[in-house]
Design a protein around this nucleic acid. Sequence first.
RNA 1: GCCCCCGUAGCUCAGCGGAUAGAGCGGCGGACUUCUAAUCCGACGGUCGCAGGUUCGAUUCCUGCCGGGGGCGCCA
Length: 534
Amino acid sequence: MIRDDLAAAVAAAVGRLGGDPAVPVQLERPARREHGDWSTNVALVSAKAVGRPPRDLAAELVADLAAAPPAHVDRVEIAGPGFVNFHLAPTWLHDVLRTVVTEGPEGYARPDLGGGRRVNVEFVSANPTGPLHAGGGRWAAYGDALVNLLNRCGYRADREYYLNDRGVQMGLFGASLAARKAGTDLPEGGYQGVYLEEWAAEMPDDVDPVEWGYARVRQDLRETLDAVGVHFDTWFSERSLLDSGAIDATLAELAARGVTYVADGATWLRSTDFGDDKDRVLVKSDGEYTYLCPDIAYHRDKFARGYDQVIDVWGADHHGYVARLVAGVEALGRRREDVEVILGQLVTLKRDGEEVRLSKRAGTMVTLAEVVDEVGVDAARLTFLLQSLDTRQTVDLAVISSKAMENPVFYVQYAHARICSLARTAAEAGVIRRPLADVDLRVLVEERELDVLRVLAELPDTVVGACTERAPHRVTTWVRELAGAFHGFYHDCRVLGEGVTDEVTQARLWLVESARIGLGIGLDLLGVSAPEQM
RNA sequence: GCCCCCGUAGCUCAGCGGAUAGAGCGGCGGACUUCUAAUCCGACGGUCGCAGGUUCGAUUCCUGCCGGGGGCGCCA
């Protein structure tokens, strides 16, 4: 890669000039075109240590580099307070094209960050007491894309859904179902959703409402998540922890480690020893487990299944729960960095500008299934992956369902469809793309052409950043940029037809192919389809 | 009171310590006899909430304040 070549050249020059070779050389793409194609700040960074003005250092660097410029380098300049800017010949972008095509959809932008480490990503995990509401789509799309990113970056990541299938809520759910069926009053705090009426009507007379309802919910969850294209590797049942004795085994292990104690008839975890602000009850004085207790057993189980790292994706409303869960994991002897909790801000739903309160119990809900049904998987997923998880997202149902331009999914998919259409037209016209090695890419000199390649060049960095920062939305941003660059190219540069020389047609066909590969990689990471026509 | 997230163009949001802060949408003005106009181009639009600090350099990091959202149970 060009950056590594430039960095190596700069490091060597720094060494020859008596600078500190330990200072890492940073190469970045300047925001402004006149600042060149690549820029380094070594002179700024090491000026103090060397005790000389940064511009003097930069001048020496430039002189040294000019003696034997690295490949593709046209000229090297000093700018501003002491930046060293590299202006490259377009050939560096032609190399990008070759790399993209040669490495292909499988190989390009596939950095090995994970080294095969196994990661368990748990997400959605809504209580099995009703359908997923529309806001849950954010967790579904996010978790799924995050796993895609991890897997692309050399981890072995799995998707997991935790079913809280025991406890108070389940009982309440079953009782609500039974009451609906019998036409009696709902229990105190019961579930009022319309879906309960439908399900009660389906429910046979001679069944346990909790069990029947639980099965019904799982079916619904599975169908909905299938419809959003999210397929979990594991559906983990909280009950199974009780049945297998894992909860008691966990309590025994914690006791053996001396991190629990009994007070006021309850069993407590010394979570303050692990960074929590107060100790937490694991077993209540009435003998029941708290929510935390099986949850610690659950995380112990994940590690027992061979995962090196565990990631939980939760809504920000669970913020107060993080410290005790992490404390619990640490109390079991794991390193605290082995468990990572990602908190996302909740989704506010609006319909025609008016907020729709989402409450499963109150029953005023818009289901995820309805939204997907209305707008389609692709629009739904891309919408949820448009913004950082730290931003509270407002989704106006009227907007995403209007198939209008407000929704960027069409913009991006249209670019892909155009690419495929171009390939079809070429085939119909009998234009055969020659092997890349036989094509002269140096005819690609138009800014529109080079812009496409500039964006493609950034994909590897984007993937790394999106993965390490747990920020799939960066891929969304990138995909929109590539689509924009492609549309501009498409508008200004003809690939086929009279007035275009054979050389240019050939080179542009490969340019289009590289864009197809890049767009495909990005959309695949997001779980959004890349249509061949629209 | 303590903890977390947010505050950037009219709206929704990008922005990985760098140079003159970007995109989409809306509004305004343009471009289709040619590979898909679901596209493209132009102009307009900003005290990056406020005040300090660190730094050669801060929208970005730190502290305080203001505003919005969420959380602080032997609930789940």
